[in-house]
């Protein structure tokens, strides 16, 4: 499903953020990626859908090597990769339905996108997914009027609209209160099971990582130093993952270089 080989990433002339990662996801299930701020979790996720350009290595998604794709073929490969964000990244001034339908942008024509005339199947799918997450009464509400938990559910639905083969979630609960955060993680887990969808979640909260995931990958300064089941993640393993990084904060903000803002422009993608 997803196979990463010798992946490295360096921003500008800085240090390597990812130092030759190898890892594979074969089938459905929830994989948690843990590690302190700056370990390279966000960068890893963004390399998979090429929001960040890998420096070297290969990433194969669903049999396609995405590392060399350009233009239309890159955009088509992105359709198969759904993504959920820490800050939700909804379009605040658009309605819930427009946000949800924007998950189909990779499939519809520009004219359809501009006039919001999406195919009937897409609209049906949008309504049923919104019902599934309990937001059927918010269809025409503006996204910025929703609460944090509701917004992230819109984010989940938007990603699922893509009919993805794999779902990436970058700290999906870090902006939410503990209770809402738990709800979003359960929802993600349930949807992963219902749709037999492989999910890759960056997460700060170790308890949630253990509770909701089948597999845990520990990242430390760009290297995988733990890869096992949630049960195998004991205190010793946690020490190795977070050792010497204490104080950089378990809830801390990711440093700027890890936010992976690519300022080279969206045009050439």
């Amino acid at each position: 499903m997803l196979k990463i080989t010798d992946l490295t990433k360096r921003y500008g002339n800085g240090e390597l953020v990812l130092k030759g990662l190898n890892f594979e996801i074969e089938g459905p299930g929830l994989t948690a990626i843990i590690g302190s701020s700056g370990a390279g979790k966000s960068t890893l996720l963004r390399c998979i859908n090429r929001l960040v350009e890998p420096t070297s290595g290969r990433i194969v998604v669903d049999g396609v090597d995405v590392t060399t794709l350009r233009g239309r073929r890159l955009r088509h490969s992105r359709r198969a990769i759904g993504m959920i964000f820490q800050g939700f990244n909804l379009i605040d001034r658009l309605s819930v339905m427009e946000n949800v339908l924007s998950g189909r942008l990779g499939y519809v024509s520009f004219a359809q996108a501009l006039t919001r005339r999406y195919p009937q199947d897409d609209v049906d799918r949008a309504f049923s997914l919104l019902e599934r997450v309990g937001l059927q009464d918010y269809v025409n509400k503006r996204a910025d009027t929703l609460s944090g938990g509701q917004r992230q559910r819109v984010g989940v639905v938007r990603a699922l609209m893509q009919e993805p083969k794999i779902l990436l979630a970058d700290e999906p609960t870090a902006s939410l209160d503990p209770k809402t955060s738990q709800q979003i993680m359960s929802l993600t887990r349930e949807l992963s099971d219902e749709l037999s969808l492989p999910v890759l979640v960056n997460i700060h909260n170790v308890h949630q990582a253990k509770e909701f995931s089948d597999r845990v990958v520990g990242l430390r300064y760009g290297t995988i130093i733990f890869d096992g089941t949630a049960a195998e993640l004991d205190d010793d393993a946690l020490d190795r993952i977070y050792e010497g990084t204490a104080g950089r904060g378990e809830q801390g903000e990711e440093p700027v270089d890890d936010m992976a803002i690519d300022t080279r422009g969206v045009a050439p993608s």
Binding site: R75, R78, M83, S102, V266
Partner: peptide, 13 residues
């Protein structure tokens, strides 16, 4: 972030 999200859906410029 909003640009990133739309871009991740496979949308062009």
């Amino acid at each position: 972030g909003q640009i990133e999200a739309i871009r991740a859906s496979g949308a062009g410029f």
